[in-house]
Amino acid sequence: MSVESLSGPTDLSDREREAVELLLRRMADDEFVLADRYTEWQVRAPTIESDIAIANIAQDELGHARLWYDLLEDFGYTEPDLIWERDPETFRHSTLVELPFAEGDWADCIVRSYFYDEAEHLQLHALADSSYPRIRDRVEKVLGEEDYHREHAVNWLRRLVSSDEGRRRVQEATDRLFPHALTLFEPARDAADAEAVIDELGVRTRTLADMRAEWLETVTETMTDVGIDLRPPAVSDDGSVDADALPDHLGRDGDHTEHWRVLFDDFTGAYREMELHEATRFMKDPDDE
């Protein structure tokens, strides 16, 4: 699908800018919050090897968040505006990434990353021909690291289900996380116009509903294949899923579970306690790499 290229960050109309900004915030917040959750497995993963692997995946996701937040800085925001001093109610990540892990449950971590990485894979491919050049130029870099993430999740899934205990845990994690995973493709209901403009201008070349349909097919097939019961929800003609299948809080519109505030206070704790007013920069700007 070929789309007309948008201009650089400083020449966008308000309407275009709102759409690009919404898309970037959805992606950046997902990556950042998920990375933060993953780091909870540091020194707690089942083996030293799995510990190192998940820590590296967390680093990758953090790196991707950095690429997307950096594009938001084009619009004049600073890092404290985007993360450290931001109103937690304005974060747009899916509730899948903010939930605490069930204590000691590695299956939770694996099922979550599987749902997420399949979704990220689809989204990145839908951005490869984005009409916004700044996004388009960074997709390849991110995609290069995503294959390993999916491989990691699937390899673990297959092995976890090989024992009764493992299969029970994967099933429980699936039941618990699946409704939240559906919000990965929920539009921001408080910004319906901007969501429509994303599609209209080709900032992303596939609609959320279209990507969700493929995602549902893929994850249902994988889960069924490993002996896990996953029943996809009813999808209407317009691509929306039955409200009963969704969790109470969707995340995308800033409405989060009670766990989000705890996590936000936790990762901004040091910034507040040290009375910082700007973020410490120790890496070059991604444009200069």
Partner: peptide, 19 residues
């Protein structure tokens, strides 16, 4: 690396020794 099988060993080795 410690791993239950070849596939997992390759997966862990990549991250641990080639990153």
């Amino acid at each position: 690396v410690h791993a239950p099988d070849r596939e997992m060993a390759l997966m862990f080795a990549q991250i641990q020794h080639a990153r």
